[in-house]
């Protein structure tokens, strides 16, 4: 089947089998390998991307389901060569070690912060239910997300 969608602001199209997963389309056909696959039961969250503005597990969506949608992956998060505040905060607060869960973590957190710009630590930890990390013990991930939230609130205020 022929599908078309917008990925990271760019119109793309491709030929896929109905059984092709969105993550397979992104990785194998578009070469966007920042989105990872860490499990086969839709729980680890390494594959989280945004579909039409909300976070989704790209391993639990068929590529054909995203036909006509707008998809953002980790590669599309930085704008104009400037890191997204979450990317910056993960770096500054050592919110990553091996880096494998990181794209999904950041994409998931970005969805949280667009819904809740001022989450508590508890809310951050609950939101990350669908993202597993084996390296960091979550401590610095949570710290980074809270720091990014603060930065983004400051930016929003400055823009007013």
């Amino acid at each position: 089947m022929r599908i078309s969608m917008t990925v990271n602001g760019r119109a793309v199209s491709g030929e896929v089998e109905p059984r092709t997963l969105l993550v397979e389309f992104l990785r194998n056909q578009l070469g966007l390998t920042g989105t990872h696959v860490g499990c086969d039961t839709s729980q680890c969250g390494c594959c989280v991307v945004h579909v039409d503005g909300v976070s989704a597990k790209s391993c639990t969506m068929l590529a054909v389901q995203a036909d006509g949608c707008s998809v953002t992956t980790i590669e599309g998060l930085a704008q104009g060569g400037k890191l997204h505040p979450l990317q910056q905060a993960f770096h500054e607060h050592h919110g990553l070690q091996c880096g494998f869960c990181t794209p999904g973590m950041i994409m998931s957190a970005a969805d949280l912060l667009q819904r809740n710009p001022d989450p508590t630590e508890h809310e951050v930890r609950e939101w990350l239910e669908g993202n597993l990390c084996r390296c960091t013990g979550y401590h610095n991930i949570v710290k980074a997300i809270l720091a990014a939230a603060q930065t983004m609130r400051g930016m929003a205020k400055a823009a007013e």
């Binding site: 990785r27 194998n28 966007l32 390998t33 920042g34 989105t35 990872h36 696959v37 992956t73 980790i74 590669e75 998060l77 930085a78 890191l83 990317q87 993960f90 770096h91 500054e92 050592h94 990553l96 880096g99 494998f100 990181t102 794209p103 950041i106």
Partner: peptide
């Protein structure tokens, strides 16, 4: 010192074995 290796990972440009074709 914040880590050197971070940049590629936070931008989705790490290169893990399955990323190689």
């Amino acid at each position: 010192v914040p880590r050197k290796e971070d940049l590629r990972f936070i931008t989705g440009r790490g290169r893990y074995t399955d990323d190689i074709n």
